[in-house]
Design a protein around this nucleic acid. Structure first.
Ligand SMILES: [Mn+2]
Ligand SMILES: [Mn+2]
Ligand SMILES: [Zn+2]
Ligand SMILES: [Zn+2]
Lengths: 128, 128
DNA sequence: TGGGGTTTTGCGAATGTTTCGCAAATCCTG
DNA sequence: CAGGATTTGCGAAACATTCGCAAAACCCCA
């Protein structure tokens, strides 16, 4: 219960993730593998993504429609994501103050900020 | 195609939302209404929540499990949420720089910050 | 106040995503 | 290469959410 076999399906999925660094749903991945002859069952796609996510090399995010999407992302340094509303490309963004963000995004990455969502978690007064 | 009837199901749902200001799923709401004798069909729960969300009096968020949850929240002023990992209670937080947040949360609300997620959206260099 | 047109509800069925069980296929190691 | 451990594929659940449609509820005003 420790092993980690290097199988064809896993290889195909990881290769695809490496080649397209934006958030993709399990179905999207499944379909694209199908197209490029590397047929992998949907269940295996899910299992592999979950495995990579647990291992920490894949970031998961549920999109506005409630579908879970996955993208390669090594969390070496804590950072956030700027996602292009149009093409889905993702910029990694360091974790600094908001103003810095806005201008860094604009000047350093050419990313025109037009929205953001933040959520904090922790323990409230009562629960402490 | 404009009307907005004041019906028993809608009343029940809105009353419940007013009485418990934390993020609840459609199923949770449905079950709790059931318990307190105010039986409302699940489809109606969804329809009402969507209606309130569109009207702008309810904030929707998909939780880590991919389930959509809803909470009363007038977005008069743009703000963010600090959600207690334990009890689910929500603090409204103004939108300022991150350091301010941390200490404001701690000192002003007694909220012990231990995690955050941010996501930016906009248009990337290439797409502009 | 009641009738009738408009809107909403409830129900069950349809969708779409994600998970599961299990036998068959694949991998590794020695 | 054989044997045991692991992974795959498949189809069947399990859920969440949406839809169509006939019946019920609501509003308005004659
Ligand atoms: Mn990243
Ligand atoms: Mn709020
Ligand atoms: Zn783009
Ligand atoms: Zn709490």
């Amino acid at each position: 219960m420790r092993a980690d076999y290097a199988t064809r399906p896993r290889g195909a999925i990881e290769r695809l993730l490496e080649s397209d660094r934006r958030y993709l749903s399990a179905t999207q991945i499944h379909t694209r593998l199908d197209v490029e002859q590397a047929r992998v069952s949907l269940a295996t796609v899910y299992r592999t993504l979950e495995r990579l996510h647990t291992k920490g090399t894949v970031s998961a995010r549920v999109d506005e429609r409630g579908e879970t999407t996955y993208m390669l992302c090594e969390p070496e340094h804590h950072h956030h994501h700027a996602i292009c509303r149009i093409c889905g490309r993702v910029e990694d963004v360091p974790c600094r103050a908001l103003d810095e963000f806005a201008s860094a995004l604009q000047q350093r990455y050419g990313f025109e900020l037009d929205g953001h969502a933040m959520e904090f978690s922790g323990v409230c007064n009562t629960c402490r």
